[in-house]
Design a protein around this nucleic acid. Sequence first.
DNA 1: ACGAACGCAACTGCAATTGTTACGTTTTGC
DNA 2: GCAAAACGTAACAATTGCAGTTGCGTTCGT
Lengths: 148, 148
Amino acid sequence: MKRNSRLSLALHTLGHMAGDPQRMRTSADIADHVGTNPVVVRRVLGKLREAGLLRSEKGHSGGWRLAKSAADISLADVYLALDERLVSGGSEDSDPSRCSVEVGLQVRVAEVLEDIEAQLVKRLGETSIVEVHPSSCGYCEAGSDSEK
Amino acid sequence: MKRNSRLSLALHTLGHMAGDPQRMRTSADIADHVGTNPVVVRRVLGKLREAGLLRSEKGHSGGWRLAKSAADISLADVYLALDERLVSGGSEDSDPSRCSVEVGLQVRVAEVLEDIEAQLVKRLGETSIVEVHPSSCGYCEAGSDSEK
DNA sequence: ACGAACGCAACTGCAATTGTTACGTTTTGC
DNA sequence: GCAAAACGTAACAATTGCAGTTGCGTTCGT
């Protein structure tokens, strides 16, 4: 699925950060670990920064770090920060040419989807990113040494 | 959203069929009404036929019709027939190179999505396609006359 | 047997997303 | 100060998924 791409990059990275919150990670580091490009990483993590989950620092020893306690970041926070919603999102312009069956249907389905998404967020809100970090994690044990 | 395209074609068409179950509709008719191509209609409705919701007949006076009572067809039936699932759907090949955070995350998120989708299906299952057909529907009142 | 419909495969076109390159800006360390 | 290392951003290329289209075969009914 396409929707999982950015979300999984974000969750994956935050999962690691939860295991070692002080460590500063560069986008190149992260990109290398998840198998993508530094610019892509910056694009995704930039969203998380806007949402107040991460902080980035420029300059020589810059990089990315959690902006608050890992325990206070839930999967829902990450999901919402990327604003990829299930429901189509309001192309409900009242086009008079549309037939009534179509309109009634859209309303009905949209209602259900809205409701379902709320439940999804609720469920995601119940787990923090600290809970997805296993005790043994090679990537984190590697510490600050960036071995090419 | 892209996911809504086929689903809305399917629901729209079934909604109309529920209002006049005996009438045979050609894919060209339907395509004209929903503003698309006959082949696209056949692609989507073909899925519904595989699921036992519709029957199609070839030949001169062929076309599409409900395969069972409209009251027995729920929105969930249509949703499931198109097999567009929320959850990424089993690319869970145990790649040893994947890091444990990633794996744990996928499992966790997949669990939630599975659960959420079950609720979605349950909700959709509560309404039948007869409930989305308004009493006054110009398209259906037009009857079998296909006015170009 | 001819026309009208579906069935199916292949191709094109479009839109969204990701990947890539390039360049500017900021900060650190020397 | 100045070079190196990092982010920020814009622009472009590559990829992907899906709708749309065409074409042809098949199957019916008249």
